[in-house]
Amino acid sequence: MPQVAVTSAPLDLQALTRDVAGPGAGDGAVVTFAGLVRDHNQGRRVRFLEYEAYEPLAVRALARIVDEVRAAWPDVRVGLHHRIGRLEIGEASVIIAAASPHRSHAFAACRYAIERVKQMVPIWKREYFEGGDTWLEGATADPDDEQAKQEAYRIACA
């Protein structure tokens, strides 16, 4: 499977983990992350989410995160998939697998990747809750914002 993907199909963390950690007999650790659709948000009871992406740019942004991970932790291999479309409570919206000879690098790279996804990948979620719906808006996406990058790195290595 591709290292990065934006897809309307259900995400497969096991397969991604196998791909990322499989080839490297020298790996001492693989850290995985799955972001799930939660049934509540800011006091609202969430019914489901709908994700939308600017797909070609989202794929490029994910690839850029992979490049940034490689630059920061050269011994890490990372896979990063984001789902779009309607997602029910409990389903995975994003999955990440990071493998490395060293657990500290794998943990840091995995955390860095999700922070960067939230900062600058052109994907949006619309929350359908009991009583209405609303677009959620987080960060102004700017991949060249060094301060944001440093913040993601700081969180990753905390």
């Binding site: 600017y54 919206s93 052109p122 949006w124 959620l136």
Partner: peptide
């Protein structure tokens, strides 16, 4: 973004270009 690459407001555009306007993102 211009042609699916992040850009600035000052970037020039050409005939046939795709110019995208993106609200703050909320992936993850």
């Amino acid at each position: 973004a211009v042609n699916a690459e992040y850009a600035r407001m000052t970037a020039s555009v050409h005939d046939g270009d795709e110019v995208a306007f993106l609200p703050p993102v909320s992936g993850g």
